[in-house]
Nucleic acid binder design. Structure first.
Lengths: 310, 310
DNA sequence: GAAATAGTGTCTTTTAGACACTATTCA
DNA sequence: TGAATAGTGTCTAAAAGACACTATTTC
C-alpha cells in the first residue's frame, strides 16, 4: 500500500469586492478581485498563482487558513472547500504527482485592505487576469462560477461587507457578483422577509440624502434542510467562530402577499458596534471593523446550511 | 517540501434504487441502496466500508471507476466528486495520515443487479445500516443529502433507470429519493416541458391497464449557465464515451400559462445514443446538460451544467 | 426647496400546486 | 364492463418582477 502516491497541496481562491481599477473608468461600481502570488521558483517561475502550499500536519481547512495567514495575514470570514484537482498529469514532471484540494473564501472590504501585500502578492481584478501558473486560471473560473451560483441561493453576500451595512450596500454586492441590476424595492422586501437581517439601530451618516439604516447579518431560523455533517459537529475543530444566532423570528403566516411583503422583521435590537463616517455609498463600503475568525471558519465539515450546486 | 505528507485514497458512494427489503413489508416502493465491502484487515476489520482504494497513477475519477470495476464490475452512468475528507486525525494511527477524495455515483437498476457481489460485497438499504468503518457513515449521510438536493434542481433522476422508461417510473424515482408523493399530472407536464425527454415510439406492455409511452433522456438545450470547467475541456480525458447531444429544441415562447403547459416537446426524433447524466435548470426540472465522460463519468471537471449545493 | 436616495404600495406576470376529469388498455 | 393507470384541463395560491409613488435627509 503506497504511502507516497501523491503530494497534497492546499490552495485558496479568495474573493473580495473592491472599486474597479482606474483603467476601466466605468462607474464607481465595485468588481471582484483575487490576491495572487508571483512564483519564485520553477515550474512557472514568475507567473502568478493562487496562494497555498503543501499540506502540513493539520486539517485541510486549517492548511488553507494557515497559508492565507502566512502569505498575507488574511483570515477570511467565509471559507469552504471548492474541489479536489488531481488529474495525473496536472503538474507536469512532478513525481509524485500533485493533488490540490482547493478552498474558496470571501473577505470583507476592510479586511481586504488590511491584507499584507508586497512585490509578490497583489490583488487582481478577476475580469482581467494575466496568464497564470498551472491550472489556476481554470480553478478561478470555476470558483467564480460557484460564487455566482451560491450568491443566488444562499446568503453569503454579506461576507463581502463589514459587520454592519445598509441594504443598498448589500444590493451592490449582488449586482457586482451577478453583474446585473437588481430592483431596489423588491430586493429590500425580500431581504427583510428572509429574517437574516437585524437592525443595528444606527444609520449611516455622511450621505447627502436620507440616511439609510444599518443592519447586521443574523442566522435565519434553521430550515431543517441542513447538511448532516454540519449538525453533527458545528464549529467543532479549532474554530474560534461563534455565530450568535439572534432571534428575529416571529410567526410566519401571511394572509396575503402584500402582508407577507410588508412583514418587517421584528426582534434584534442588538448592541450595535461602531458606525462609520463615510459619504458616498461606494466609500461606505468598509463599515467598522471586526476581529474575524482565525482559522477555518466553515472548514472541517463539507457543507453548511445550504447545498452547493454543480 | 514534503512529498509524502499524506496517503491519498479514493472511495465512492454508489446509489441504486431497489425494492424495499422484505423485512419492511411496506408497499413495493423502491428505496435507496448502497454497496458496502466488509473489511478484511485492520483497522476496523470485519466492519463494512465504502468501496475504494489507494490512488494509483491515474486521474482521481479514474481511480474511482477502477476500484468500482475491480470490486464489483460496476460502471456507473453518473459519477461526480463529492468531497475531500482530510481531517488530520481521520484515520487513527495512520502515518502518514490519509486523505480520501470521495465520489458519488448512480447506477441504473439493471446495472445494479448485474453487480458482482460476494461474501464481502453486498447491497444495503441506506435507511438501515450497521455501524461502518472510519467516518464512512457520515460520508454516506452527506452523499445522501447531496443526492436529495441535486435531484430537485437537476435532472439526474433518470440515471437510476434504464435506457428507456415511463414517466411514472421517473416519478417513482423522485418519490423514492425525496420520500414524498408527487402530483402525477403536474410532474408529467413539467418533465415534458423541460425538453429532456424524447419518445422512443414504444410503449410498456404487460400492465393490466393503458400502456404508457416509453421515453429516453436527452440533453436539453444548454442554458448558458454552465460550469466553465466543463466547456473548456468536455469529455477530454480518456473517455470512451461519446454523447451526442440531440436537439430537442424548438421555439420557446409561451403566450399564456396553459399554452406553456400544453406545449408538448416537439423535436427529438433523433438517433439518441448514450443517455447522459446531466444537468438542469435552476428552478424547475432541469433543462440543459453536458456530456459526461464515461469511465470517469463526470470525473475530471469539477462541475457539470448545474452547481452543487451545500 | 432641489437633489438624491430611502423606503412603500400596488399591479402584472410567472410558477407551483391541487384536483376534477377524460382516455385507453387489459382481465 | 370494470379496474386501473395514462394523460388533459382548469382553477387557485404563491412567488417574482415592474414601476409609480411617498419620505427624509443634506446642501
Amino acid at each position: 500500500m503506497p504511502s507516497d502516491n501523491a503530494t497534497l497541496a492546499v490552495s485558496t481562491v479568495i474573493f473580495a469586492l473592491r472599486p474597479s481599477p482606474p483603467s476601466s473608468h466605468r462607474a464607481p461600481a465595485p468588481t471582484i478581485w483575487v490576491p495572487l502570488v508571483r512564483r519564485q521558483r520553477q515550474p512557472f517561475i514568475d507567473l502568478l498563482a493562487l496562494p497555498g502550499g503543501p499540506l502540513g500536519d493539520e486539517d485541510l481547512a486549517a492548511a488553507a487558513s494557515r497559508t492565507l495567514f502566512e502569505t498575507m495575514r488574511l483570515a477570511p470570514k467565509y471559507l469552504e472547500q471548492l474541489y479536489a484537482f488531481g488529474d495525473a498529469d496536472r503538474v507536469f514532471g512532478a513525481d509524485p504527482r500533485v493533488v490540490s484540494v482547493v478552498y474558496w473564501a470571501l473577505v470583507g472590504n476592510e479586511e481586504a485592505s488590511l491584507a499584507r501585500l508586497g512585490d509578490n502578492v497583489r490583488w487582481h481584478p478577476v475580469d482581467d487576469l494575466p496568464p497564470l501558473a498551472f491550472d489556476h486560471r481554470r480553478i478561478i473560473d470555476y470558483a467564480l462560477w460557484r460564487l455566482r451560483n451560491k450568491v443566488e441561493y444562499s446568503s453569503i453576500a454579506h461576507s463581502f461587507l463589514g459587520e454592519s451595512f445598509t441594504i443598498a450596500q448589500l444590493r451592490e454586492v449582488y449586482e457586482a457578483v451577478l453583474d446585473r441590476p437588481i430592483d431596489a424595492a423588491n430586493f429590500r422586501r425580500d431581504m427583510l422577509a428572509s429574517n437574516t437581517l437585524a437592525e443595528t439601530g444606527e444609520t449611516l451618516a455622511g450621505t447627502r440624502h436620507r440616511p439609510p439604516k444599518l443592519y447586521r447579518y443574523i442566522e435565519a431560523p434553521a430550515p431543517s434542510e441542513q447538511s448532516p455533517l454540519l449538525t453533527t459537529s458545528p464549529a467543532a475543530k479549532g474554530s474560534p467562530h461563534d455565530h450568535n444566532r439572534l432571534s428575529a423570528h416571529h410567526d410566519h403566516a401571511h394572509p396575503d402577499r402584500q402582508a407577507g411583503r410588508r412583514e418587517l422583521f421584528a426582534g434584534a435590537r442588538e448592541v450595535a458596534v461602531g458606525v462609520r463616517p463615510a459619504s458616498a455609498v461606494l466609500r461606505a463600503w468598509g463599515v467598522n471593523g471586526r476581529p474575524a475568525p482565525a482559522d477555518g471558519a466553515k472548514a472541517g465539515a463539507p457543507a453548511r446550511g445550504v447545498p452547493d450546486r454543480d
